[in-house]
């Protein structure tokens, strides 16, 4: 196992850049191949190059959980699994790793900590809240990347076992409500923080703009997004602001 530590560490480091060549043809594939390569170096000459080529084929999932596929595919190559089985394993992992990562990170861990930080900044915690966000977020981030790579390498083709890990199930159940509560609490505090420098008429205008924009997003969310509406309203405000001297 000691001999595997260095390639695993190298693979982990490369996983931090797994989306470096993100593209519409292979998505994360090339990055996955680069991350998997150190784990394949001790294969026979005849097996090494085909395994490296396979590793760089199309792949798409949540970037923090890609390690699971990298470790599992590399272990399967070492175990002598047939190439088509390894290709099927990679294909089968795309969907579950994507949806699990999106649920845990993009819809859980990240907005939870962001909401807590917004609330803390609004309450006057300043840059310390932002620094704490970075530290706490990345403890979870790095731990997840390392766990995923190790679990993939340990389980190989039976990697689906790792996806049913009780900690993942529990985290999924806890993060949703915690995120909803934290961001819900942060919104009014943030509104008060941002509106503090405004005069009373501007606060009334702010409430109207926020309420109408919210209605717009709820009713026409398919066409409207924050950037488009902000730019349109800012352009309107500029015109009014130039005329209304």
């Amino acid at each position: 196992m000691a001999a595997v530590k260095r390639p695993l560490a190298l693979a982990l480091l490369r996983l931090f850049a797994v989306q470096g060549s993100y593209n519409y043809e292979r998505m994360l594939g090339v990055g996955v191949g680069v991350a998997e390569e150190p784990l394949l170096r001790d294969l026979d000459d005849g097996k090494y190059r085909p395994a490296v080529a396979r590793g760089a084929h199309f792949f798409n999932s949540h970037p923090y959980l890609v390690g699971l596929a990298v470790g599992a595919a590399a272990r399967a190559e070492h175990d002598g699994a047939p190439p088509d089985q390894i290709e099927r394993l990679r294909e089968a992992l795309c969907g579950p790793l994507g949806s699990l990562g999106d649920r845990l990170i993009w819809a859980g861990w990240l907005p939870l900590l962001s909401g807590l930080t917004l609330a803390a900044v609004a309450l006057g915690a300043g840059w310390i809240a932002v620094a704490s966000f970075l530290v706490v977020y990345n403890i979870g981030h790095v731990a997840l990347r390392w766990w995923a790579l190790k679990a993939g390498w340990t389980h190989g083709t039976r990697v689906s076992v790792a996806l049913h890990h009780p900690v993942l199930q529990k985290a999924g159940a806890l993060l949703g409500p915690a995120m909803a509560f934290a961001v819900g609490a942060a919104l009014p505090l943030t509104a008060a923080y941002l509106s503090a420098p405004f005069e009373s008429w501007a606060r009334v205008a702010l409430s109207i703009v926020a309420a109408l924009s919210f209605l717009g997003f709820r009713l026409r969310g398919d066409r409207l997004n924050g950037l488009r509406l902000s730019l349109a309203l800012a352009a309107l405000a500029l015109v009014v602001g130039v005329i209304w001297q």
């Binding site: 501007a202 205008a205 109207i208 926020a210 997003f217 902000s230 309203l233 800012a234 405000a237």
Partner: peptide, 18 residues
Amino acid sequence: LLAVAVVGTALAAGAAGT
């Protein structure tokens, strides 16, 4: 007005996105 437009939309986008 410019600040109101952007801050108001940002608050709405935050709420709707959540």
